[in-house]
């Protein structure tokens, strides 16, 4: 689980340096943890979990914090539900072209609560790496 990955991302090498907006990163990480804990342990409080996710999204927008795509992909954009594969999200490969060619493959993540689909055209570049993951690769350890 990509918990708190937006916190101090790309600045792991100099740990003594103070991270700007550290309090806001801590708050976002905390809201992510409690909403995830509620969804898994107590699914009857789903409305509260969605409320915390909405607060997370609003705080990130208000304080202009760049969240990691790993976190953004686990939150539904429309209904703020925690997207858990098999529980609140279904994943499948879709190909709408006539020739069914490989470069038209689209990886679809569908929220089972509101029906919103996240579409990733994985067929175009099968070796695509996210920008944040590229940053991790380039750091010599």
């Amino acid at each position: 689980m990509a918990k708190g990955k937006g916190k101090g991302k790309g600045k792991g090498k100099d740990k003594g340096k103070s991270v700007p907006n550290r309090d806001n990163y801590a708050r976002i990480s905390y809201l992510y943890q409690i909403s995830n804990q509620f969804y898994l342990a107590h699914p009857e409080y789903q409305a509260l979990s969605r409320g915390y996710n909405r607060n997370l999204d609003l705080i990130a927008k208000k304080t202009v914090i760049k969240l990691s795509p790993h976190i953004k992909r686990t939150l539904c954009k429309k209904c703020n539900t925690m997207l858990i594969p098999g529980l609140t999200m279904s994943m499948y490969i879709e190909n709408l072209s006539k020739q069914k060619s490989q470069h038209n493959d689209v990886f679809v993540n569908k929220c089972l609560n509101c029906g919103k689909c996240k579409r990733f055209p994985v067929g175009k570049d099968r070796n695509y790496i996210l920008f944040t993951d590229k940053q991790n690769e380039n750091i010599p350890t």
């Binding site: 409305a47 509260l48 969605r50 409320g51 909405r54 209904c79 703020n80 609560n113 509101c114 029906g115």
Partner: peptide, 17 residues
């Protein structure tokens, strides 16, 4: 307008409370 679009997160939370 589908039923899911009418249910925002704030509305669901307010109804729950």
């Amino acid at each position: 307008i589908t039923q899911e679009r009418k249910k925002t997160t704030r509305q669901v939370l307010r109804e729950y409370i």
